[in-house]
Design a protein around this nucleic acid. Structure first.
Length: 285
DNA sequence: ACTAGACCTCC
DNA sequence: GAGGTCTAG
């Protein structure tokens, strides 16, 4: 076991299951609540220990593995700095207090892209189910001291399996989107990791070129995997909370992309972090 | 630029 | 109806 250093208090439960990532699994380890994920081909397990994270697997975690985990968990984020950036906002203040320690994650861009293409017109439970089916339908089996585990399929594996394979897993019309997106990535030799830390506008333009990726999905991918912390996905929940709290219950029709750019200016460089607190709060009241 | 309808499947 | 996107007009 090894306590991970984090700049701020860390709330694992809120962070891992707030709807930004669907690849973490709750698991019982020594009768204690733990959480498991595969990162870069390695299986990791963590659990909450007071305000910090305890990395309990791999057992003798290497320096490099520990870096992979910390990088994914964004333990260096300074939440206090983000919290104080909007001091006068009553609703946000109570959200920060209620979910103190909620972090964004830094996910793998490819896995994140597939995840949020799946999210369209869908619910969290089924998104999770679809991703599990997808992972289990390929033979990417690895073995460690805990037993077998699987890694996420690559674009070329998805192409080889075919669009019909995805349909047979229950992906519906999203099968075509994921299949075509895989083809574009492979044939145009696109390295999604290179989009990391590129500016918001360029990434938005690049990502919305993929079929099945509109403004909302692109903003999710940018926020949850590409370090564009000013990304601001507007879904039905964010739309609700913006109207209720910030637009005086306005029922005017405003396009989500216009709401998005307006509130990006309003909330500033960490609007994406604020977005996730708004989302999580609105869903949990 | 902006607005309706269709779209797969499952709870 | 569900954490949207695409297409037509």
């Amino acid at each position: 076991m090894m306590i991970l250093k984090s700049k701020s208090k860390y709330d694992l439960e809120s962070t891992l299951y707030s709807g930004q990532c669907f690849l973490w699994n709750p698991i019982l380890s020594d009768n204690l609540q733990a959480h498991e994920i595969v990162l870069g081909g390695t299986r990791f397990r963590v659990q909450q220990l007071s305000d910090k994270i305890d990395a309990i697997y791999p057992l003798n975690i290497t320096q490099n593995q520990s870096l992979i985990l910390q990088n994914h968990l964004r333990v260096d984020d300074d939440l206090g700095y983000i919290y104080q950036s909007i001091e006068s906002d009553k609703y946000l203040l109570s959200s920060f207090k209620k979910f103190e320690g909620l972090h964004l994650l830094r996910q793998d861009p490819w896995e994140c892209l597939v995840t949020f293409i799946c999210s369209s017109n869908n619910n969290m439970k089924r998104i999770k189910l679809m991703l599990n089916k997808l992972i289990n339908s390929f033979d990417n089996t690895h073995t460690d001291s805990l037993g077998e585990y699987k890694t996420f399929p690559t674009p070329d594996q998805i192409i080889e399996a075919g669009e019909e394979h995805l349909r047979s897993l229950g992906f519906g019309y999203r099968a075509k989107y994921i299949f075509e997106t895989s083809r574009i990535i492979l044939y145009e030799n696109i390295d999604l990791l290179k989009l990391r830390s590129q500016n918001y506008d360029d990434n938005l333009e690049q990502l919305t070129m993929f079929p099945g990726v509109g403004d909302k999905v692109a903003n999710c991918v940018m926020l949850f995997s590409l370090d564009n912390l000013n990304a601001f996905p507007v879904d039905v929940w964010i739309n609700r909370v913006l109207r209720e709290i910030y637009l005086n219950d306005s029922k005017n029709k405003i396009a989500d992309s216009r709401l998005r750019s307006h509130f990006q200016s309003y909330f500033g460089e960490y609007s994406g972090y604020i977005n996730h607190y708004l989302f999580h709060s609105r869903r949990n009241d």
